[in-house]
Amino acid sequence: MSGWRGSLLGVLFVASMSSILVYAFLGYPELGFVRPLGEFYLFNTYNFENQDWWSASPNAVTGLLWDYRGYDTLYETMVFYVGIVAVAMFFEGHAKLTKTGGMTVIVRATARMVFVFILTSAFAITIFSIKTPGGGFQGGSIMAIAYIAIIVALSKGFLPEMNIDLEKAHIAKIIGLALIAGLTIVPVVYSLASGSVAYALQNQPKAWAPFGYPTYLGLTSLSGGLIIPIQLGEMVHVGMGFTIMFLLLTMKERED
């Protein structure tokens, strides 16, 4: 399909397809209002009067992510895991990282400082995600940047010095996943053990399902039940996943 025929086909296809879609959209309401279900989440997400319906998270999106529609997010995380597997499956078996060394003390110290700084901000974004914008995925992306920055700035040879290699990254990633899966399964196990009603990934107790994770860490600091630990798990998973992808995609092939 070359030349004008291709263009004509393109124009025809786009014109007909978009007019069909526009026809569908003509019946849609004008923009600018929030549908009742959205208002429901906004109203209930941190509403002390109605604790049957709350998610104990002032950030409604975070509440949706790991409470109201947590089961979606669980498998969204697994989809991301498939993405990592894709890269690992195709590009694994390459040379292992070897320490090349030879950096000056100043460079090493600066790298460590920057590294720790970025990691800290990743943790902060994850942990405070119930009150501010952020979350496990965002924190994980930033965490990966800590490693990627080191690779870009100081070459991959520096990573072993920071005790990073692929195997450890995999293990850390799996620990993160195991944390998420474990928190998902706990209510189910509780239900099996006690015979009471509890649902997978249940966060706060409800009138019809009494099981719940503690809302507060200690006395006052809000944990959102399972939200913060599960976000930490996701952060590790995502951060390590991105690091693995980046390491594998930038490595040279082994000669064999």
């Binding site: 697994m78 799996i174 899966a181 399964i185 239900s191 099996l192 009471s196 997978a200």
Partner: peptide, 28 residues
């Protein structure tokens, strides 16, 4: 019976666990 109620979900979660435990076992 909670086991009967949870059974299909447990099957899903078991396969979920299997998906990354496989990798862990495969490495070691």
């Amino acid at each position: 019976n909670p086991l009967l109620v949870q059974a299909p979900i447990l099957a899903m979660l078991l396969t979920l666990l299997g998906s990354f435990l496989c990798v862990l076992l495969g490495m070691f």
